[in-house]
Design a protein around this nucleic acid. Sequence first.
DNA 1: CTGTTAGCGCGTTCAG
DNA 2: CTGAACGCGCTAACAG
Lengths: 347, 347
Amino acid sequence: MRRAEAVAGGGPVRAPRTGRPTLEEVAERAGVSRATVSRVVNGQTTVAEDLRRAVEAAAAELGYVPHAAARSLVTHRTDSVALILPESPNRVFSDDQFFPSVIRGVAAELDAAGKLLVLLTTGSAEARSRAERYAVGGHVDGVMFASLHDADLLPELMLRRGVPVVCNGLPHLAAPCIDVDHIGGVKAAVEFLLAKGRRRIATVAGPQDMVAGRERLDGYRQALAAADRRAIVAVGDFTAESGHAAMRQLLADEPDLDAVFVASDLMAHGALQALREAGRSVPGDVSVIGFDDIALATYCDPPLTTVRQPIAEIGRSMARTMLRLLEGREVEPLTILPTELVVRTSA
Amino acid sequence: MRRAEAVAGGGPVRAPRTGRPTLEEVAERAGVSRATVSRVVNGQTTVAEDLRRAVEAAAAELGYVPHAAARSLVTHRTDSVALILPESPNRVFSDDQFFPSVIRGVAAELDAAGKLLVLLTTGSAEARSRAERYAVGGHVDGVMFASLHDADLLPELMLRRGVPVVCNGLPHLAAPCIDVDHIGGVKAAVEFLLAKGRRRIATVAGPQDMVAGRERLDGYRQALAAADRRAIVAVGDFTAESGHAAMRQLLADEPDLDAVFVASDLMAHGALQALREAGRSVPGDVSVIGFDDIALATYCDPPLTTVRQPIAEIGRSMARTMLRLLEGREVEPLTILPTELVVRTSA
DNA sequence: CTGTTAGCGCGTTCAG
DNA sequence: CTGAACGCGCTAACAG
């Protein structure tokens, strides 16, 4: 990996055509020192106009692009941040639109700030340790976590290593968090069902190792308790299949239920199918309300009444918080985004 | 940015607690040289067992993680590769499952190889030049392009800069390409419609600045020409809205059409809606066939007959090709994956 | 098998 | 305002 030696025979010693031009080569071509080129490239204003132009010309002709590694070795910055998606790639990029929407929000905000987004999925133990090494190894300036599980130690680990962290889905951490008002949204949904005269209201809850799963169940319980009604609960894992299975379970346990709040739209889609198979009409026999308001909700048959959470805004907000963190500015320790009931046909 | 100076007063000079341990600190703690630590960290077998253990212990205690920039500055490797998605983040992470599925395939394969995936969207000119600087700047070892547009100069640019490239959607490049058999799949679809006795078969074509758009239209034309029938064409851009508009156009131009091949499932979904609004039954009055076989196809009403392309396999194949390229091995210049007609209800 | 040495390409003092 | 010199943390020759 060493540069070519001078050619034997005493001809003029020319630097070999290396793959990429370096600062030094630009400097030589422009007839200035490396330091001056560096200043120009980094937009310092303390360079004489003619030199600056010479440097810019030389850089353009050579197609100079600073070497990322060399630069970040000395600056300790990379101008890129990671978004960690604590699921397998299969899950992240499935038909659940949650992660894609978060990504979209993050990407938009980072793009505007000229930062780069690195996506990491940590669905396996191996992937998790790779992500750790990646972040701690200084590949990125900070790390954002989407939809964390309770048991995930990665955020704390990174914090301890001095990596700036922003998260979603675990509010009690020593890092700024972005989340939505799960409980308020679910209460509105259940109250809507009660106001419609529904009396036996069940729920398909989400996974209980996640805040989103627990709080949506809490909201349901609180609303029912306030109306002095009994809770009827089945638990799924946010997938359509689990929603289908949970709905069957509910129908078996409680055949006379007349409404169900399902903790995600994807599960609601599965639940609708189970109701159809059981010969129940929606919303005639059973009212159904979902949670998320992803595109699928409008495709459902009938179109799904659901609690909208601003998913892309979670991403945007995380990104903005991270950018502020990287600038050393103050940030809100906890940001709660609003949810709202979107009434369609299923309830 | 300089290390703390020795403390005045002559006490023992201790290295200040820097943010992250370096090779040197591990070496000192283990009582060996930096080189030996480097060897152990990089898994070389030429280190005596006792030293290796001492190094491993020291590294573990200090929580040593190699500094990415320093390493890749000398190795010229980063162990990560980029996947470029030549659309805006909004488009990439929309309800079109194409990109997510490609990502999934790429991620799976790269994961298995211990490489990291960096996702870049190049929907704007600015994003494009940022991606260029990123790749040329040596952040990644190679670049993969998904679903290229004809006019995209980025691949050639990167090639010229010596960056390894693999692409999808532009087969005539000086880089290995992965694509699917568009024409064969579409021919099968149209022939299926003809065999069913359909006589006035229209098409909603995709964007004509992409191979996928052009070849699917070609396949349609070839199959109709072989049957001595007239082509009836409207053009969309692969979105549901454009499919809806194109279908309305077709119905206005050719009210007695009895079948339509739509060049993407998302457009087909829009087309179905337009047909419904126009009071045409599917498949009674009009047969509809889509292209892709994403999850949406099964949600359609009626479930969509469609040409399946192995989207995730495109991603896997791109990743495998890239890995081989990075190892300096031979690769196929062109890989064509098969398509197949999946018959459901809409035709 | 191990340690010593020389850069990788760049930003950044510090003199001039 | 400019250039010379140093070091970021690491790998890879080269000696021993």
